[in-house]
């Protein structure tokens, strides 16, 4: 899969690939929550914004090293989800979805209006020129940022793949399927969900931090609640719960966005009805549909061993 990303970077334009890589990380968290915890979150832009603004605050006010900036962003996301998590993970999945969407609106409102003295509202924070170059891979140069992004993606995938194999991964699936029975055998749904919530949203914050460094600026628009459906759409496009769904979904979505925006310009019209269409017609997404076919064609003898 990483080889696929590397291969694509040779053919496809650089900004597109950077977008795909960051988007993939963005969606991994959402995919994990839907596929493993059974929680659909409409609040992903909020966690993205938390990561992005943590990074931006560091790079704008305090330091200049983008790597440290990303670490600060991840830390911000971790603290944020640790604070919010206990409130949210006790909820029923329908309440969870709605409360998260409300959170997205509130965070958007915070960054745009309430904290305008430090976020500079709609003007955004610009720190492109303040970032110093880093050794080995210079994050201020897009082509090297891409290499960094692919490495990060690799580690994120390795981590989630590892999670799937552990007892904890099994518990996650179990809490999605039957929370009562899981409790009977002595596991706490709360701690399983809380841990999953923190992991997923910290990953999302990582994506936000990388966005901030890559673009060199942040604005409230990044966490706009009108984009709340994006990670969910991409998850669905890729196929819920599949490990590599996010990559396929991100490529398809970013590609469509580029093409369609150029063609008709009315992006909302398209994406909205696409979402309705996906919900009514295709359940398993692109990767979910391809996976069993690929497994038969590419590995006719052995089981699909996930490159």
């Amino acid at each position: 899969m990483i080889a696929l990303l590397c291969g694509l970077s040779l053919v496809l334009p650089l900004p597109f690939m950077n977008e795909v890589v960051i988007f993939t990380i963005y969606v991994v968290g959402c995919n994990f929550m839907i596929g493993r915890l059974g929680y659909i979150s409409f609040g992903q832009p909020a966690y993205l914004a938390i990561g992005a603004y943590s990074t931006a605050f560091y790079l704008f006010y305090f330091g200049s090293n983008p790597l440290v900036g990303i670490l600060v962003g991840v830390l911000g996301g971790l603290i944020g989800s640790l604070l919010i998590g206990p409130f949210f993970v006790r909820l029923r999945s329908d309440y969870f979805a709605m409360v998260n969407l409300a959170l997205a609106v509130v965070v958007f409102y915070l960054t745009e209006k309430v904290l305008v003295s430090i976020t500079q509202g709609d003007n955004g924070l610009w720190f492109m020129t303040q970032m110093t170059s880093t050794p080995v891979l210079d994050l201020t140069i897009p082509s090297q940022f891409l290499a960094f992004g692919i490495i990060v993606t690799f580690f994120v995938f390795a981590f989630y793949k590892y999670l799937d194999g552990t007892i904890y991964g099994a518990c996650c699936l179990a809490t999605k399927l039957n929370e009562d029975k899981l409790q009977f055998i002595g596991y706490s749904n709360f701690s399983i969900r809380f841990l999953g919530f923190v992991i997923a949203n910290t990953t999302t914050a990582l994506a936000g931090a990388m966005y901030a460094v890559y673009l060199g600026f942040v604005s409230p628009e990044m966490g706009s609640p009108s984009r709340a459906a994006e990670p969910i759409i991409v998850t669905l496009l890729g196929g819920v719960g599949t490990l590599f769904g996010p990559v396929v979904g991100a490529i398809a979505y970013t590609g469509m966005k580029d093409v369609i925006s150029n063609m008709i310009g009315n992006w909302e019209l398209f994406i909205g009805f696409l979402l309705v269409f996906i919900m009514l017609v295709a359940d398993r997404g692109i990767w979910g549909t391809l996976e069993p076919i690929l497994a038969r064609v590419v590995f006719p003898k052995s089981r699909n061993t996930d490159k």
Partner: peptide
Amino acid sequence: MITSFGLLIGG
């Protein structure tokens, strides 16, 4: 909720 969000955005 997802479906109706799609409707809302499309609308």
